[in-house]
Write a protein that binds this DNA or RNA. Structure first.
Lengths: 336, 336
DNA sequence: GTGAAAGCGCTAACAA
DNA sequence: TTGTTAGCGCTTTCAC
């Protein structure tokens, strides 16, 4: 049977309150008493009960992190950074994946009284009001994904995908490419995909002849996995439009696209240059290795926790913008 | 402010117990009363508090799943299967990754009173006693990974990697291969890696000339990621030993190995056949596509929850063995 | 420096 | 069919 605090108190010959103090505020208790308590704790293999503690402190020391695709190594690294930072502050992290039932999670968060939640998912998948509802219920929220959330209510952490897209386009342009396609997979004309906006800006700024003909958007539920890259690359080829370079919304899609191109006899990068966003490890090992706009994912995760923690402990929302950097590898080359 | 059950009781003009009953056992309460309660619930936007509920029921409806590498899509699929089955029964799943601090998680599980835990990690990483300690503290445990746990205390779910290795070896043998290497990455002479045992059995049974010279084991912490496959393949080449086929402990390592071979001018499969275990999606998209011993990961996850749930609700431990099946793709070919 | 007691929100006997 | 009440294990005033 599990020992409770009162068992400890009895064995140590003190009161339950003293046990609590000895454990959490040892400086308030006589050294000798602390020692007695610690011995009793050890003898009984006593562990405090977080449930009961939450009951009186109103804090669960539990944080949720909601993401779309746990299998994308991109998210895996972010989680790693986030979780290790959280653990250091004694928070327990709940990773929540689950594709179409994000709303259910949100209900669960309230019911389980999480202290905070980090939501990194495109907002097609959830209801914005539900997010504010969390806040109204005392749960601190951090979002990522340019969802246009009210910054007074929730914190946010974003990647500067717009600038990154500019850099990507300039790089391809400098290689002589003029017919540059963008396989987005996300919705067109929506503010969430900054890359899409950045792409169109650059098409105009650089005076590319393709106009918007080479922008391929997706449809609900806007999946951006390897299989989707494969699909959109085939769509691009079927369209009959001219292209010499392709940018994908993320690395995973780039890898699928490369597969599709090779199957149809296109050589990468000789016939078509391909690049992505994120900088996942697989890209390094791919054939050819993938040029990408890299993002320090672990650091991003750590920074995310920092923001959320600040909101939880001090009550202030915050904002952080992360920068990406170009990694040139073998999947891009001079336009012939 | 969050509404409590007594607010609801007041508004509905009934007692708190009636609210509880109306919510969980509506058949025990007059329809009219149920209706009144439901209206009050809605009006107040009341949600039951799981923490308080756990306090009295002694159940948290929370399950932990411990795994080593969240970024391996293999685990992602297992988690997906496990979680969706768990959610159906109203359990909340805690995914726990975190490389070297598994023990800390275990402490946390007790402190947070999880109802059950699914541990799928090689046992180098944790202390077996800690596992039983969970059981002693009332937490039901399911393990995977041939850790040799006492089946009276914990349930287990395993993959028949031994039979799968036999099939893999027979397949390569039938293609004419005699010099077949096995890149394990795990420890030699330990019972956890059934593939390793199966490999040695087949080396003897088929009378392969290589003996055990082509078995490459790893060292602590026995990482089996893509980068490790790359590393061991290079070790194999450096050894100067003859080989025409290579089996890797999992697909991820196979992909890294293929990369290494190609870099050194070996063609796959013309010069060397490569195959793995798991059947992850990336293998399908790889160049060349990867032959593998496939495993139905989502089903595995569902079955895992089923076992754990049975232990939680009925108190009986159980065992399940999953079978793998050969998927032939382009990374293996007749030995020249 | 230490102890007594109230209270966190809920469930589960037991009474009514 | 509904209400009363005693916990669940802990923290936290407030006395002593």
């Amino acid at each position: 049977m599990k020992a409770t605090r009162s068992d400890v108190a009895k064995l140590a010959g003190v009161s339950t309150a003293t046990v609590s103090n000895a454990l959490s505020n040892p400086e308030k208790v006589k050294d000798e008493t602390v020692k007695k308590v610690l011995e009793a704790v050890k003898a009984l293999d006593y562990r405090p009960d977080m449930i009961a503690r939450s009951m009186s402190t109103k804090k669960t020391m539990q944080i949720g992190i909601v993401l779309e695709n746990i299998s994308n190594p991109f998210f895996g690294d972010i989680v790693r950074g986030f979780e290790s930072a959280a653990n250091e502050k004694n928070y327990f992290v709940n990773i929540c994946t689950g594709f179409n039932k994000l709303d259910e999670y949100f209900d669960n968060f309230i019911t389980r009284r999480l202290d905070g939640v980090f939501v990194t998912a495109i907002p097609y998948k959830f209801n914005m009001d539900k997010l504010y509802h969390l806040v109204d219920n005392g749960i601190k929220v951090l979002v990522s994904g340019n969802v246009g959330a009210d910054f007074r209510k929730v914190s946010s952490i974003e990647n500067d995908h717009m600038a990154a897209m500019h850099e990507a386009m300039e790089y391809l342009y400098s290689l002589g490419h003029r017919d540059i396609a963008y396989l987005s997979g996300l919705g067109r004309n929506l503010p969430y995909d900054l890359r899409s906006i950045g792409y169109r800006q650059m098409v105009e700024r650089l005076g590319l002849p393709c106009g918007e003909d080479l922008l391929f958007d997706g449809k609900y539920p806007y999946s951006t996995d390897m299989t989707d890259g494969y699909y959109y690359a085939n769509e691009l080829m079927k369209s009959g439009r001219k292209f010499t370079a392709v940018i994908c919304v993320n690395d995973l899609m780039s890898l699928g696209a490369i597969k599709a191109f090779k199957e149809k006899g296109y050589r990468v990068p000789e016939d078509v240059s391909v690049m992505g966003f994120d900088g996942i490890t697989y890209g390094e090992y791919w054939e050819p290795s993938l040029t990408t706009m890299n993002l320090d994912k672990v650091k991003f995760g750590e920074k995310a926790f920092e923001l959320l923690y600040s909101n939880i402990s001090k009550g202030n929302t915050g904002y952080f913008e992360n920068k990406l950097s170009l990694i040139k590898r073998m999947s891009t080359a001079k336009c012939r």
